[in-house]
């Protein structure tokens, strides 16, 4: 674990896996998209709208996974002061927010033709919406201070507070949902046919590999930002001598 704390070590590993994950992402999209859009059969109940599922489910999985990754990174940063763990959390947050938004949007575009409404206060959709607000809070807090390190620490604590609250919120929303008898969702998840699994896994792989690829790019760029700040700092420190 401590090996990864060193930026040079971390970037060596990241650079080594970078072409592979980028390749996996491209391959998965290349095979996954045609299968999801063309060769996979339309559902006998939902028709072609079932194809939205191949975007909705992977986005939902990534949205949640990235949140846990962020919380883990934040914990490592706060406990062991691993700067790289923080950079991973920071670089993940915009993507987590994006996947959460995509999950919600695709869910809505699926819900309208199927349930006749863009939005139902279904337990899962509601929890996802709350998760979206967590991401927004994390991003807004990290960006709210003059001193970037202060923003890093504050948002790391927030990520942990959020992750502790995830089970409580899910429990509450489920309770609330069963009590208020939501619009009955006639579509059960159990009728997922085997033909749907292949495109689903491919798209899931594509999204996950995309996340890792862009994560490496973003971590590189966060590292550079830190280097730029340091260089600026030392320039300012050197200023008086230059004036003499």
């Amino acid at each position: 674990m401590h090996r990864f704390a060193n930026p040079t070590q971390f970037m060596r590993i990241a650079n080594a896996i970078y072409p592979w994950v980028a390749g996996v992402a491209i391959l998965c999209f290349l095979f996954g998209l045609p299968i999801a859009l063309i060769t996979s059969p339309a559902d006998y109940q939902q028709g072609n709208t079932v194809r939205i599922l191949y975007l909705h489910v992977p986005a939902a999985v990534l949205a949640e996974m990235i949140y846990y990754a962020m919380a883990a990174g934040s914990a490592a940063y706060l406990i062991w002061r691993h700067p790289m763990a923080n950079l991973v959390a920071k670089a993940s947050a915009p993507m987590g927010a994006m996947f959460t938004a995509l999950c919600l949007i695709c869910g809505m575009l699926w819900g309208e033709p199927m349930w006749g409404t863009f939005w139902v206060w279904d337990a899962r959709l509601t929890s996802t919406l709350i998760m979206f607000f967590f991401y927004l809070g994390y991003l807004a807090l990290g960006d709210a201070f003059e001193d970037p390190e202060r923003g890093d620490r504050a948002s790391a604590i927030l990520a942990l507070v959020g992750v502790v609250n995830v089970p409580i919120i899910k429990f509450s929303v489920n309770w609330w949902n069963t009590l208020h008898q939501p619009a009955s969702l006639s579509l059960t998840k159990s009728n997922m046919s085997g033909d749907m699994l292949l495109p689903l896994f491919l798209m899931m792989g594509a999204y996950a590999a995309f996340y890792v690829t862009v994560l490496i790019i973003r971590v590189r760029s966060e590292l550079l930002a830190a280097k730029i700040r340091n260089a600026r700092m030392s320039q300012i420190a050197a200023m008086p001598q230059m004036a003499e």
């Binding site: 194809r51 939205i52 975007l55 949007i105 699926w110 862009v214």
Partner: peptide
């Protein structure tokens, strides 16, 4: 199958977001 608006906008928005994220990064 008559669901062009829904399916294509879902795929379109997702593609734009992912490409946008990549380009921005």
């Amino acid at each position: 199958g008559g669901y062009a608006v829904w399916v294509w906008s879902a795929y379109g928005i997702s593609a734009l977001s992912l490409i946008g994220m990549l380009v921005w990064s």
